[in-house]
């Protein structure tokens, strides 16, 4: 079966404060694929992500979700997206369960209590913490709740911005396994990160961004994951 393209940057250029931050960027991510956008600080990866989320307008080219330009109809493209920001601070005055129920209600997604428990189990959030207010949570625990929301939204496309930031090594492994599982079930994932190791662990393809331009593309094969050394060398050579 031919997989369809769900995320596409076509000659995408973005200027912010009179500075070209993303230049002529083109790539496409197919359904069920995990694509890592890797780059150092100021490489333009977060700007690219914001364009796909509909928060920034492209100067040239287009950022498309399911063929629809994100800056033209952000409300429509966002319906297909779940987004996990770096260190998402959900509402501190609500508990994990309340936060999840609240966000699912905002997204008009119906989930049973069992579904919610299953998602919280998947992200390994301690059972005794689930009814505590998030104000008492660590950064990693808060991130787990946000991940649970993203899972439960069951959106066909998942955008991740430095998703494992703040998570402990065990939680990172669990998270990576979860992303792989979601991708296998058909979810398309675009992950923005500067963590070479993490990206290589989970991504099917990695695009290397430098000063807003795509300078390298690495692809996993059926037999092997992307080589950390190879990516690291390319990453470091331009630094």
């Amino acid at each position: 079966m031919k997989k369809i393209t769900t995320i596409e940057a076509e000659n995408l250029s973005i200027t912010r404060a009179k500075k070209v931050v993303v230049k002529n960027l083109s790539f496409a991510v197919k359904q069920g694929e995990v694509f890592g956008l890797l780059g150092g600080n100021g490489a333009g990866k977060s700007t690219t992500l914001l364009a796909f989320l509909g928060f920034l307008t492209s100067t040239e080219g287009a950022a498309r979700i399911n063929g629809v330009e994100a800056d033209v109809d952000p409300a429509a493209t966002r319906r297909a997206i779940a987004y996990l920001p770096e260190s998402a601070n959900l509402y501190p005055h609500l508990s994990a369960r309340e936060n999840i129920n609240y966000f699912l209600s905002l997204a008009k997604v119906k989930s049973s209590a069992d579904d919610i428990e299953m998602a919280l189990n998947q992200v390994s959030l301690a059972e005794e913490a689930r009814d505590q207010r998030l104000s008492s949570y660590s950064k990693g625990m808060r991130q787990k709740v946000a991940i649970a929301v993203a899972i439960l939204r069951q959106a066909p496309i998942l955008f991740l911005d430095e998703p494992t930031s703040g998570l402990d090594p065990v939680a990172i492994d669990e998270f990576n396994r979860l992303i792989t599982k979601l991708a296998k079930s058909g979810t398309t994932v675009l992950m923005v990160t500067h963590d070479v190791y993490g990206a290589c662990q989970v991504a099917d393809r990695i695009g290397l961004l430098r000063r807003g331009e795509l300078v390298g593309m690495f692809e996993a094969t059926n037999d092997a994951r992307i080589s950390v050394d190879e990516v690291h060398q390319a990453f470091a050579s331009g630094a």
């Binding site: 989320l53 928060f55 409300a75 779940a82 987004y83 905002l106 997204a107 946000a146």
Partner: peptide
């Protein structure tokens, strides 16, 4: 750091 998360969730 919740604005984008919220906007994407609610549309």
């Amino acid at each position: 750091n919740r604005w984008a998360f919220l906007s994407i969730t609610v549309g």
